[in-house]
């Protein structure tokens, strides 16, 4: 398995001399370069998303991709005469990606250097390596879940939603209310475990502890009477976002101890972390216990710390990056008004 720090989530392709032979603007592109179409399809199947940074005329380049049957594989393609480092930055921002999760493929060493200079953590590959990418460990995934196979479509729905939000006149809360978001919380079953494992490995920013568990440990936790292990799905008017959140609570004598709170970065601004946290306070109340949360500070998860603190949690123990937080209010947190929540109690 690829080291979690080095797993590529997005591949950004150059076109001329990389995806196809020749230069489109100088009298035409030739055939697809050998193996590239297969690589693009296989990366897509693995749930690795793809985009384009190409110096070209946008409409003729997209037309060419359509002729090859590849146009749909790319999210927010950046085709213009701008610097590629700028195009890469636009893709990082639009898709909410960290540079270390991104690979850039270009036959031109100048372009690779230009991108690397601006984004030292983006990994650059020569076009000669394109056909072999799927054999490299950083492009390997251990298994393919339903969420990974649908990932491109979910990202596309996210982009459509973002565009709608930008043209929306009212406040953020009013916009969220227009989405008709439905969150479904259920107990983790064996069928969910691959997605659970994928979420624990892929998520860094919205991860309260970064704990990872083996498949066998996850299976044990899902069956343990001493734990409450929940997964949540989300859908709205723009489509199904799949399984996007995890909550793991350990039953202790006087407290429910939150061991893991994870939310997929794709749904970062939609209040799912807040809603899961609200659910945890409600569960603790129902069992007549305090709610405590373990937190392990990393360089990426400060957002989670802020979420806890401003939801009414206070530090009760501190040991370097290891914190224990406790919810100090009498009333549990209600679910946000813009979100409908279905809770299925199966397995309890």
């Amino acid at each position: 398995m690829a080291d979690k720090a080095t797993q590529v989530k997005c591949v950004i392709w150059d076109l001329d001399g990389t995806v196809w032979e020749g230069t489109l603007s100088e009298g035409g592109a030739g055939a697809l370069r050998p193996g590239v179409a297969d690589t693009i399809r296989e990366l897509d199947r693995r749930g690795i998303i793809q985009s384009i940074a190409s110096k070209n005329d946008a409409s003729s380049a997209m037309k060419k991709l359509e002729e090859f049957g590849l146009a749909d594989y790319f999210l927010c393609p950046q085709i213009s005469w701008d610097h590629k480092s700028g195009s890469v930055q636009t893709i990082l921002t639009t898709l909410n990606l960290k540079p270390e999760a991104v690979a850039f493929v270009d036959d031109n060493p100048f372009e690779r250097d230009e991108v690397r200079f601006a984004h030292p953590n983006v990994r650059a590959y020569d076009a000669d390596q394109a056909a072999g990418l799927t054999g490299l460990p950083e492009f390997s995934v251990r298994f393919i879940t339903q969420d990974s196979a649908n990932r491109r479509k979910m990202y596309q729905a996210d982009l459509n939603r973002q565009a709608a939000e930008q043209s929306f006149g009212g406040s953020a809360e009013e916009f969220l209310a227009t989405l008709n978001m439905r969150m479904e919380i259920s107990r983790v079953t064996e069928a969910d475990l691959r997605r659970v494992e994928e979420l624990t490995v892929r998520t860094h920013q919205l991860n309260s502890t970064g704990y990872t568990y083996s498949y066998e440990e996850l299976l044990t936790l899902s069956r343990s009477p001493d734990h409450i292990f929940c997964i949540c799905g989300l859908r709205d008017n723009y489509g199904d976002s799949g399984k996007v959140g995890l909550l793991l609570l350990e039953r202790q004598e006087r407290a429910l101890r939150l061991k893991l709170l994870i939310v997929s970065c794709r749904v970062m601004t939609r209040g799912i972390g807040s809603a899961l946290l609200a659910y945890a306070t409600q569960l603790a109340r129902a069992e007549g216990k305090k709610l405590q949360a373990e937190f392990f500070e990393t360089e990426h998860n400060r957002i989670m710390y802020i979420t806890y603190k401003l939801a009414g949690f206070e530090e009760v123990e501190e040991n370097g990056p290891n914190l224990l937080l406790e919810y100090g209010k009498d009333e549990p947190i209600p679910f946000p008004s813009y979100l409908a929540v279905d809770i299925s109690q199966a397995g309890d």
């Binding site: 939609r270 209040g271 946290l277 979420t307 939801a311």
Partner: peptide, 23 residues
């Protein structure tokens, strides 16, 4: 969020004016 009577001294958490997402 819509301003609905928001003042500089409105208790944002008590009035549920902000959720942790907005915080």
């Amino acid at each position: 969020k819509k301003a609905d009577g928001l003042e500089y001294d409105t208790e944002l958490f008590k009035s549920k004016y902000i959720t942790s997402l907005f915080a």
